[in-house]
Write a protein that binds this DNA or RNA. Structure first.
Length: 372
RNA sequence: GGAGAGGUUCCCGAGCGGCCAAAGGGGGCAGACUGUAAAUCUGUUGGCGAAGUCCUUCGAAGGUUCGAUCCCUUCCCUCUCCA
């Protein structure tokens, strides 16, 4: 079954509808990250009201706790959590990368030591497909190896072969009944030929969609876009393209311009908890002393609950006092900002004015004039 | 009135002859964060534009010493116990 319908294009930018088992999702879409089946500090109510219709959870984390079998017995992640929107699960590939000290990568799979209790687990592509089926994600991701930057050509090359082999095994392991979609993940580090090779091999396996992974791992920005450019035109236009783990608003702007349909990133939620707000004029660190007695909202004219109700001074106070409400309100603002931003991107594509939107946004965002 | 303990940089608190502008924590200030082991991490926190065999600082004033936050004397102030 088809995973996306493209409604309109503007240059390379695509405006479409992602077809999932839990609703049709307007693309380009940004998925807030909810690793453990919840976007930190949010309930479904706030997310839904802000227009979030799709989130990302993590199969590795849910496998360890509470357990994928348990979630299956509870009726799947949607029933278990009460989330009516769509959900994509990452396979745990990123954890192979980020929890590096606790792992050993083999051809057969990854030997992993749980960060929770130290227990040993052998994660294979087949197993992670099964885990994601148990969880009941609308979109599952293949197990992959996300290579760090910098990595040698030799290492990256072997890693791509491994990721490709794992993708083949994931493809073979999936059960064909049900509406869950499975995406392949293009790797290849920062070597164009490896990216091309990875893309070609995955495309030949006919996945429901394709992700570009292994980006934003510490490389210069230019390199990241080189890799996207290298691969984007190889991808079948009738399938969704997902840029994993990206990014900042300016990254979304660049990605959409290049034809990416889906993004996820921890940035809006984590930065919120750490005191950084997104504004049309760039990032704002609310801890800065100059906001101590600032009665204005974070963003003048912003319709989010936090901006409608609270001042910079008060939000700063909540953060400094380590009040839990701070996480809630800050996250609301940043997620709202992202949702509104994505809506604007989509409308710009519909209107055929993406280039203009791109220029205006960048000028404002890099101008940094929120402090008057 | 008697006995004892103590006063250290914004706060708490270590230091008890030079390696001390003074550990550590808190707080403050600033930075970072990109498929979340994140309610996290990093830097900085006396002055002098920077630097230093520089200046000021460890309750106050004297003293001993080449040298004192550290030893001595007196004073001021806190706290505890006894009366």
């Amino acid at each position: 079954m088809k995973a996306i319908e493209i409604l309109k294009t503007d240059g390379r930018a695509r405006r479409g509808t992602l077809l999932t088992g839990h609703g049709h999702i307007d693309t380009p879409v940004f998925m807030p990250v909810g690793t453990q089946g919840t976007v930190k500090a949010m309930t479904h109510k706030e997310l839904w009201e802000m227009g979030v219709r799709m989130t990302l959870a993590n199969a590795y984390h849910l496998y360890l706790r509470p357990g994928d079998e348990m979630i299956r017995r509870m009726g799947g992640i949607h029933e278990f959590s009460g989330w009516d929107g769509a959900m994509l699960t990452d396979s745990g590939g990123f954890q192979i990368f980020s929890l590096g000290v606790l792992r050993e990568i083999k051809e057969e799979g990854v030997l992993f030591q749980s960060h929770i209790d130290g227990s040993r687990h052998f994660l294979t592509p087949e197993k992670m497909v099964k885990v994601q089926e148990n969880i009941g994600a609308d979109i599952a991701m293949c197990l992959d190896e996300c290579v760090s930057y910098p990595s040698s050509y030799e290492y990256t090359s072997r890693s791509v072969d491994l990721t490709t082999d794992w993708a083949r095994r994931c493809r073979a392991a999936r059960s064909e009944e049900g509406s869950q979609k499975l995406f392949g993940i293009i790797q290849g580090g920062f070597y164009e030929d490896l990216r091309v090779k990875s893309a070609h091999e995955l495309i030949s396996m006919d996945f429901d969609g394709y992700a570009v992974g292994g980006l934003s791992v510490g490389e210069p920005k230019g390199l990241m876009w080189d890799m996207v450019d290298t691969v984007i035109d190889l991808l079948p236009p009738e399938k969704p393209r997902y840029m994993m783990g990206v990014g900042m608003p300016e990254d979304l702007l660049e990605g959409v311009k290049r034809g990416i349909d889906m993004f996820d990133c921890i940035i809006p939620t984590r930065l919120a908890r750490n005191g950084t707000f997104f504004t049309p004029a760039g990032k704002m660190n609310i801890r800065n002393a100059r906001f101590a007695e600032d009665k204005r909202p974070v963003v003048e004219g912003c319709s989010c609950y936090a901006c409608r109700t609270y001042s910079r001074a008060y939000l700063r106070h909540l953060l400094m006092a380590h009040e839990l409400t701070s996480f809630y309100l800050n996250t609301i603002h940043n997620v709202y900002f992202y949702m509104e931003f994505m809506g604007n991107l989509r409308r710009a594509i519909e209107a055929g004015t993406y280039d203009e939107f791109y220029r205006v946004f960048k000028r404002q965002y890099e101008g940094g004039e929120y402090d008057d």
